[in-house]
């Protein structure tokens, strides 16, 4: 990574801290914002945040590793989380999971080589009356069937074309 990029990132984090706050209780909102923007929280980011909050980087890492919506490795532009809890299981989540694997050609816990999609499991999404349920980033889809999977992915790809805001390069910071 170029030094100038690091400096730019540090500047951005400083700005963010100016908005959110410097105390320890600001850590989670800060990390959530970094995750949203860069699709992951890099080692460098963790170090800068630790430095700015005056805590040990290990503390930041221990928080990042605890929460399932914070990632150390770059996630795709679209993170797909399929609910695997009892009622979605009863409603046939296994079939949806199989079709997601087939269409994305990746397994759960993986990201497509083009960096567009990550596939993961989620615990109860609170849509038990209309399962199987699936989150795509912040958007919820309910009563998902294997045949609906393709349409949902196609919609994401379209959005990706129109609003390709962050380049893969930026994601690797």
């Amino acid at each position: 990574m170029l030094l100038t990029e690091r400096e730019r990132l540090r500047e951005e984090l400083l700005q963010l801290i100016g908005q959110i706050g410097r105390d320890r209780s600001a850590l989670l909102p800060l990390l959530q914002e970094v995750q949203r923007k860069y699709c992951h929280i890099s080692e460098y980011c963790m170090q800068v945040i630790a430095d700015l909050l005056d805590i040990h980087p290990v503390e930041v890492h221990s928080v990042v590793s605890f929460y399932s919506f914070l990632d150390e490795r770059p996630q795709g532009q679209f993170v797909i989380r399929l609910c695997r809890t009892a009622t979605c299981d009863m409603a046939g989540k296994d079939h949806v999971a199989r079709q997601l694997r087939n269409d994305l050609r990746i397994g759960f816990g993986q990201t497509t080589p083009d960096g567009k999609f990550s596939l993961d499991w989620a615990n109860c999404l609170g849509m038990c009356d209309q399962g199987p349920a699936m989150l795509v980033n912040e958007r919820i889809f309910t009563r998902v069937t294997p045949e609906k999977v393709h349409g949902i992915l196609a919609e994401c790809r379209q959005m990706f074309g129109a609003h390709a805001t962050s380049s893969p390069k930026e994601r690797q910071i």
Binding site: T85, A86, T87, N123, C124, G126, M127, C128, D129
Partner: peptide, 11 residues
Amino acid sequence: DEGEPGTFKDR
């Protein structure tokens, strides 16, 4: 933080 499997009333 409604997370109990099968609960969605808070939503």
